[in-house]
Design a protein around this nucleic acid. Structure first.
Lengths: 333, 333
DNA sequence: GAATCGGATGTAATCGATTTCATAAGGTGT
DNA sequence: ACACCTTATGAAATCGATTACATCCGATTC
């Protein structure tokens, strides 16, 4: 087995000093053409790779950013991962993804141990003292927490909810239910509150089913809904997964969507367009969000700390769009 | 802004040497109780966190494992991520997830730069010379490549395909189509080949639609299928996503599943059970696979290199299971 | 009471790169 | 031909931890 190759080995083989090898690799223009050639040849021959730990230590940075998400198996996040990865790669950065629901002490370390130069946070439910204690640039995406001292990027959930409600009202629905996300989740709370406020303002009859964002919870909500004496004619779910679970259960119960009930989701995940019936929902531009967050973070990481950001994330949040598909329809009769 | 705290600062505050601080943190039993107390107090006061780069450098290991997947936004992988994360956490390891479709040179570095002590590879299409050049323990999950010098963990795709075909034959189908995965993918090729072999052996009429594993490709296959003069009465798709796309398109075309056509998938993703109709498919125990791979890797990372593994991954692959749901039914007439 | 042992702690080497600073070589202007 | 500048390179310090080795001290043994 070949032992690990160090920069010294390359230097010896090329007949130069380690300083020169280092320069040939990181700033090729600063060494003579002949020397550069020799070094490159030696690198190729030995198969040398820079030891990241050593470089990170000396440079006090890691050239990598960390994504923290509460649930790695959630469909919603994966596209953001991909967008971030793509954008970061362009800037020569490595991306690490990690579960944010890890043991406290380990979580604290993440922002201190020098393994990441910046963090994209997709979880609004971490302890604020931990998050604010992190010593690296930070940006919140989708979920947020006002106690965090970090900019945020995401759609306007209140406006989105109003959009959804308006759509259902326009279709003539007057009794509308909301299948809520998990208590304590900022997205869920915001959407629920906006829903109830809209009911008050627009004068319709609200009803809320407590659930979380999952398929199973949506299915349960459908059973609860079906058991009602007078069923609301429309249901606005806090997530697409939940809405799909709801519709799935409806099929089992012999309830037709959208004839018997109109169903709306939130997120516009890939499956929304391919379900039967396809799901009317609120679109979240996850790709755009991921990219913008990454660019912002990179700017904060590399640029002078004082330089005002070209991307002002304190701007009003991204305007949501409603995608009308076939799971909603006008009330008949 | 408080500057970064180094071990030296803690040592000074506690009135001991850096060696003692280091020992108090990593092997508490090796320092006196009084000293330990002082050190812990100083750590708490300063908010000190070990610098990972420095430690990794000195110890020549990173206490972290890397997952490489070809597509971060793929539903199939996410549950494996979660399982690995969970299992690795128990062992005190950090998990990094990265896209395997990155620029070549960066890919080469992954196994050399000391950032990860082990790799879980979910991509069988990387250059063998790169993969085999990596200097860390490696395990393949789900996808594999015979040219890689690494053990593999996954279901028996050939047996799974035979299972699927047998199920459809049992239901009386005699003209069966296969919607294949992308060319070059080892899973796709294996399933396709097993399908064709089964057709030859069992004597039915095979037909193959070229696709990839996506929803969109499944939908396209459905259109192609519908355009046929004589339509196969059953369709075996190489992935669940693809099967769902197929069924979705069927609904648009006014084709009823399973009355007009039986559809099978592969993977048993969460949505399979909640689609309408729910999807008959091959179950892959992703959680179990992720955990087993992680345990194996940890063993190889920590144990003496020579010690024979308790988990023998060279064993025959995991036996697949068929989950019968409502997208398949006996041919009528 | 001397010899020996073991536990707690400190000193300094070490991991493998980058980077500062010094120096040598070569080119330019007067 | 001399002073001066530029460019290419090397020697050595540095990043911040861990750890091999040395040392000190009190306890145990004979």
């Amino acid at each position: 087995m070949s032992k690990r190759i160090r920069i010294k080995d390359v230097a010896t083989l090329a007949g130069v000093s380690t300083a020169t090898v280092s320069r040939a690799l990181s700033t090729p223009e600063s060494v003579g053409p002949a020397t550069r050639e020799k070094v490159m040849e030696a690198v190729k021959q030995t198969g040398y790779r820079i030891n990241a730990a050593a470089r990170d230590l000396r440079q006090r940075r890691s050239r990598s950013i960390l994504i923290l998400a509460p649930n790695l198996s959630n469909t919603f996040f994966s596209q953001i991962f991909a967008a971030v990865q793509d954008e970061a790669s362009k800037a020569g950065l490595t991306v690490q993804i990690s579960d944010s629901r890890i043991e406290g002490d380990r979580l604290v370390s993440l922002g201190h141990d020098g393994r990441a130069d910046g963090i994209i946070l997709l979880d609004g439910s971490l302890p604020a003292e931990v998050v604010n204690g992190w010593q690296v640039p930070l940006v919140q995406v989708s979920e947020w927490n006002d106690a965090y001292d970090a900019p945020r990027l995401g759609i306007d959930n209140r406006a989105a909810t109003q959009l959804a409600v308006a759509h259902l009202l326009d279709l003539g629905h007057r009794a509308i239910a909301h299948v809520s996300g998990p208590a304590g989740n900022v997205l869920a709370e915001t959407r629920r509150r906006a829903f109830l406020d809209a009911a008050a303002e627009r004068g319709f009859d609200p009803l809320v089913f407590d659930a979380d964002f999952t398929l199973a919870a949506g299915a349960q909500a459908a059973r609860d809904w079906a058991a009602l004496h007078t069923r609301p004619t429309a249901v606005f779910c806090a997530s697409d997964e939940c809405a799909l679970g709801f519709m799935s259960q409806c099929a089992h119960l012999g309830v037709h969507v959208p004839r018997d009930v109109s169903v709306m989701g939130f997120d516009d995940i890939d499956f929304a367009d391919h379900f039967v019936p396809s799901l009317t929902t609120i679109h979240q531009p996850r790709n755009k969000m991921g990219r913008a967050a990454t660019r912002y973070l990179i700017e904060r990481m590399t640029g002078a700390d004082s330089a005002p950001s070209a991307l002002d994330l304190t701007d009003p949040p991204i305007a949501p769009t409603l995608i009308e598909r076939s799971s909603t329809r006008a009330v008949t009769g």
